[in-house]
């Protein structure tokens, strides 16, 4: 059975490894998009005017309320049309096709951003008001207040939640296999089809996901411990 997972032309080991690398690449890029979108959306919710707040609220409610798979399909069927339309507005006449990679990264990133927004908003609100008032009293302007007072503290509050969003994003990348991007699930699907040993390959995929989630959980725990190194606690 393990022959099937050999590297080289005889086995599927290298294909599965490339698939795992693609999964990580999609997850990291989607998470980065999610963090940017999430921060912007949180800022819009906390400090925007009414229309901006409404827009941000609609984004988080809708995207967190529909399946990630639906977002992927929408971008798969509608993404190229949208990009072509935007390109036409800038004077480009041809049709723009989105690659499966782009569709996957953007779709999972959009979903990731909606969840990250709520985490970041909660974290910013958890920074005590007195901190902000004190910073104002010292004459700090908005940018400095954000950089020196709010972000360092909010980041600590946000870390556990952002860790959960990462785990979700990592697992959501498996859905991108439906648009035939050659990530872990897609490779397992192809290998299963040609060897007729689906159990072996899906189990391998499951073990890889397990290793990835376990390793990243340990990573986030380290980060959390580092972020809390200056905090006194009543217990432990």
């Amino acid at each position: 059975m393990l022959d099937l997972l050999r590297f080289g032309s005889q086995g599927w080991g290298d294909e599965m490894a490339w698939g795992a690398a693609m999964t990580v690449a999609v997850a990291v890029l989607a998470y980065a998009i999610g963090l940017v979108l999430g921060s912007l959306t949180a800022a819009a919710k906390l400090a925007g005017n009414a229309p901006v707040r409404a827009l941000a609220g609609t984004y988080t409610t809708v995207v967190r309320g529909v399946p990630a798979l639906l977002v992927i399909w929408l971008l798969f069927f509608g993404g190229s049309g949208l990009v072509t339309w935007v390109a036409a507005a800038f004077g480009y006449g041809g049709r723009v096709e989105l690659s499966a990679f782009a569709v996957g990264v953007v779709a999972v990133g959009i979903v990731s951003g909606a969840y990250a927004a709520e985490v970041i908003r909660g974290a910013v609100q958890a920074v005590p008001r007195g901190q902000v008032e004190a910073a104002k009293a010292l004459g700090m302007h908005t940018g400095l207040r954000l950089r020196r007072v709010i972000v360092p503290q909010a980041l600590r509050y946000a870390l556990p939640g952002l860790g959960n969003v990462w785990q979700m994003t990592l697992k959501d990348t498996s859905l991108v296999s439906v648009v035939t991007l050659a990530e872990l699930m897609r490779q397992a699907f192809i290998a299963s089809g040609s060897t007729r040993q689906p159990f072996v390959f899906y189990l391998t995929a499951a073990l890889v996901y397990m290793a990835l989630t376990t390793a990243s959980e340990a990573g986030f725990r380290l980060l959390e411990r580092r972020a809390e190194r200056g905090v006194r606690r009543a217990v432990g």
């Binding site: 697992k171 959501d172 498996s174 859905l175 699930m185 689906p198 899906y202 499951a206 996901y209 376990t214």
Partner: peptide, 10 residues
């Protein structure tokens, strides 16, 4: 720790 899609396919 694994995606639901893997569980369904398994």
């Amino acid at each position: 720790s694994t995606p639901l899609l893997v569980q369904i396919f398994l």
